[in-house]
Design a protein around this nucleic acid. Structure first.
Length: 423
DNA sequence: CTTCTCACG
DNA sequence: ACGTACGTGAGAAGG
């Protein structure tokens, strides 16, 4: 492994140990209220569902649900996709398309949502008996790309839903409570800081694409600029829909999205069917304008092909054996990995460096504030009330200057009495 | 032990 | 002819 990366991972160890030992406080009472309400909703939804079927089917079994919907109730599936066990998929994306076709569909979706949220309740209840806090297990080398993973419990996939005051959907409101049950201890508040579009900024840096560099150096709305370039309209004349499509392209290119995938997204965004050809044309227009991005992504594949691994800005490697598979689909996957891993991995490198820098600065300033969570592009600090203003400046400075790029890194910083407010 | 589904970035 | 984006962890079902 590369020297810089060894160094980063080495220095990160004590920072991570501290974060895990510190843990994070849970508002147990609020959580149990949420759980009670969910159980309540669960009972009533089950009663409604069982009005559609006499049999006592297990709603947790996708096979049984599939047979109920498509065999017994004769609902016409809107996908050809069958699972490996040879039944029509009943996942959310498919069922959502069928919502209007039968009353039972939204009920099943709600049931799924409730059971999913109840699982989170169960996980979050398990606070440590001594510390009364939740201590996730942050795995420093948990992923192929350099990111952390987190387990027991996984604190990196807590529902992130914001609702307006007038939101009527009880379930949605309940879902929005999950980040509210994460609270700072007495005399403290949370400061949350997340990198703004770090993967796209990394793409700008690594590709040195002229348009992207200009956009970030001038702090322009990147998706709007993309829309204006791809659709050939003036910056200020871009529509919301064009911006939304551009956003989808920008995210897609990080994943190595294909024209087919883009066509799907276009159909979803505009509610009008889009052909492969239309999507292909938009992608071609994009790469014509952002030629630096095109040659960068092509170069990543060539590199990975030649060496058998991909590499981040700071030298973290990921082997990509898929590229030498005899199977075409595997090789295509390998190409996407070759494009995505350096981007996702470089972003991971940067936040790891930032964590070390924040920890060092906190120590040097003799502060009592603690890092409690890392969620890929976000850091959450438990901050003593009298340290709030110094910590705001410290976190911003250390995160934005963690590394020196040819474009600025930007963070969004928020604070509050729970995680929802600090994000 | 594998598959399916679903939560996050 | 086919499926359709990258990275995770958890729990239930089914074999």
């Amino acid at each position: 492994m590369n020297h810089t990366i060894i160094n980063v991972e080495h220095q990160l160890i004590p920072v991570l140990v501290k974060m895990e030992l510190e843990g994070v406080k849970i508002d147990v009472k609020k959580l149990s209220n949420v759980e009670l309400e969910l159980n309540d909703l669960n009972e009533s939804i089950k009663i409604q569902i069982y009005q559609f079927t006499n049999s006592d089917i297990n709603l947790n079994s996708s096979e049984q649900v599939s047979k109920l919907l498509f065999d017994d109730l004769k609902i016409e599936p809107k996908t050809k996709k069958k699972s490996n066990s040879n039944f029509y998929s009943v996942d959310k994306s498919h069922l959502s398309k069928l919502s209007k076709d039968n009353e039972i569909i939204p009920l099943i979706l709600d049931y799924r949502k409730i059971t999913s949220l109840l699982k989170f309740c169960n996980q979050l209840k398990n606070v440590n008996s001594k510390t009364k806090r939740l201590h996730g297990n942050f795995n420093q080398i948990g992923t192929a790309t350099g990111r952390f993973s987190c387990s027991k419990p996984n604190l990196q996939n807590i529902p992130n839903v914001k609702v307006k005051a007038e939101e009527k959907n009880r379930l949605k409101v309940l879902e929005s409570k999950f980040r509210e049950v994460f609270i700072p201890k007495k005399g403290c508040q949370f400061i949350g800081a997340d990198y703004s579009q770090i993967e796209l900024r990394v793409t700008a840096e690594m590709s040195q694409d002229a348009f992207l560099l200009k956009a970030y150096n001038e702090d322009l709305d990147i998706h709007k600029l993309t829309a204006s370039e791809v659709f050939g309209v003036k910056f200020k004349d871009t529509t919301d829909e064009q911006r939304s499509i551009a956003k989808s392209i920008n995210f897609g290119l990080i994943y190595g999205k294909t024209a087919n995938g883009l066509a799907e997204s276009l159909t979803e965004i505009t509610n009008k069917s889009h052909s492969l050809e239309q999507a292909q044309k938009i992608m071609n227009d994009y790469f014509k304008r952002f030629s630096g991005v095109k040659s960068f992504l092509d170069g990543l594949v060539v590199f990975a092909d030649k060496y058998g691994y991909s590499k981040t800005l700071y030298g973290r490697k990921r082997p990509i054996p898929e590229l030498s598979s005899p199977k075409m689909s595997e090789r295509e996957k390998g190409k996407r990995l070759a494009m995505n891993s350096p981007i996702q991995g470089s972003a991971a490198d940067i936040i790891k460096i930032a964590m070390i820098a924040c920890d060092k600065a906190i120590t040097q300033n003799n502060l009592k504030s603690k890092l409690v969570l890392q969620i890929h592009d976000e850091l959450l600090f438990e901050v003593h009330d009298n340290e709030v203003s110094i910590m705001e400046k410290l976190v911003q400075k250390e995160m934005e200057n963690a590394v020196k790029l040819s474009i600025p890194l930007k963070i969004d910083l928020k604070k509050g009495k729970n995680w929802a407010m600090a994000h």
